[in-house]
Design a protein around this nucleic acid. Structure first.
Lengths: 249, 249
DNA sequence: AAAAACCATTTGTCAGACATTTGAAGTTGT
DNA sequence: ACAACTTCAAATGTCTGACAAATGGTTTTT
């Protein structure tokens, strides 16, 4: 097993170079899933570096879920299968950090999320399972119960939309949307939902579920567009109220 | 600066625990962008571990682009701003690995990609800049030139679609779509585009560009749907031809 | 006052050692 | 012959101590 070194070694971070070399081997198929990497000692010899350096490289790969390590006689580092579950997690943390650190405004995040979600509803109307529809109905019921905290309401909202997205029956779509839906939740949490606005949202969710149940993708799309518009209206109201409270500064 | 340890320490990988503690501090805002982390020696004291262990933790975070390190007197580890550029990169590698290692079939990946792309075209028709439209036209022109390798044709295809997506003027959408578009390129590369199929694709691209230029989102959506259908047809032909060549096994 | 030399701080790397886990080979008892 | 136990070797996890290299600040010299 031989790893390629990049031609331009302008990078003097050895552990990064080694990590990149191994990652490239994984990506281009030189190392396949569940294959065992050489032991740390062998990697030391191959790259001509010390064990701590090799270990730092392996930890970089482990942080990206590209490999897993196992102790013991038959242990070592093994190439991970990138599961959809792990990809969900990475997608969500990346999206969350991106939104929080770049101060993406609510409108932009919302627009992106609903635009992609509308790409799913037509498929969802055709393919959703009875189970997914039941989940949507259950979440709608939960949302209509009084005394729910804003956080619980938002969490139910996320569950509803994930069921809607999963209804498309396309795992790649679900994976992509997971990040978008979850990452916008912290922004949604900043909106205080009045009893009346909750009623309106529940009604819109009901319209979506009805359309999905009837297999009417067009109606579901319209309902989702209405929900998007209403969400933006709510955000606008919240911002106006906040501005009124703090007239200057 | 104090880091929280998780209550259930069922994990006996110290470097992972430390990395998680610091990452949580970054996510929940305890550490803000460009803030300097304690030096490695200080972290050793705080967590009661040795320097290699702390370093492995820091390398994990560096692998996720959460921190950057700098040598020298005023050096150290600093919290990174998660730029859209870096997020693109992570999104693309994750998506690529996911598609290659889970053997997602062409139809599923294509469906997801075009579904999300259709979510952009309506916005793109309204907002695209003259620059983005020019990029689309330039790529179409390149695609129509004979003697192009399949790889170059696919690369131009990616550039065209990225310009189309960027036309929506929503960086979050661009970030999400980057992964979907780039990750499907390796699958696209497996299709050998005949001269006739290239002509058809260029014509469809032209229809899309025309609709975008006219601001007609509906027409652009129809054209993109046609492109999606045609791509799937091509894939089906390639598969049929391959099956005919290898009748058994 | 400007340039050079020096220094302290911090990360990058190395060598060697010990602890811990874990499967496999060998041993023993029935 | 088979099952249970013991031992062992391989591999990762961690620690100690040290030196190298980079880098900004400080001091000295011109």
């Amino acid at each position: 097993m031989v790893f390629m070194k990049t031609d331009l070694e302008m990078d003097r971070d050895l552990s990064k170079q080694i990590a990149d070399a191994i990652r490239n081997s994984i990506i281009d198929g030189g190392l396949i899933v569940d294959q065992r990497l050489p032991s740390e000692a062998e990697l030391c010899d191959q790259f001509g570096v010390s064990r701590p350096t090799v270990r730092e490289a392996l930890k970089r790969l482990a942080a990206q879920n590209l490999i897993r390590t196992q102790r013991g006689a038959t242990g070592g580092a093994f190439v991970n299968r990138m599961s959809f579950e792990e990809a969900y997690g990475q997608q969500i943390t990346t999206s969350t950090l991106l939104l929080s650190m770049n101060e993406v405004d609510f409108e932009t995040a919302c627009e992106a999320r609903y635009a992609m979600e509308r790409a799913c509803v037509a498929l969802s109307a055709q393919r959703r399972t009875a189970d997914q529809l039941a989940t949507m109905r259950a979440e709608i019921h939960r949302q209509s119960q009084p005394g729910l905290t804003d956080e619980a309401f938002c969490a139910s909202d996320v569950a509803f939309h994930r069921a809607l997205v999963d209804g498309a029956g396309n795992p790649v779509l679900s994976y992509q949307l997971a990040g978008a839906v979850e990452a916008t939740q912290p922004l949604m949490n900043m909106i205080t939902f009045s009893a009346r606005s909750r009623e309106a949202i529940v009604a819109l969710h009901g319209r979506i579920a009805d359309a999905i149940e009837a297999g009417d993708g067009g109606a579901a799309d319209v309902a989702l567009a209405d929900l998007s518009t209403y969400t933006l209206t709510l955000a606008e109201q919240v911002r106006a109220a906040r501005a009124a409270r703090l007239p200057q500064n």
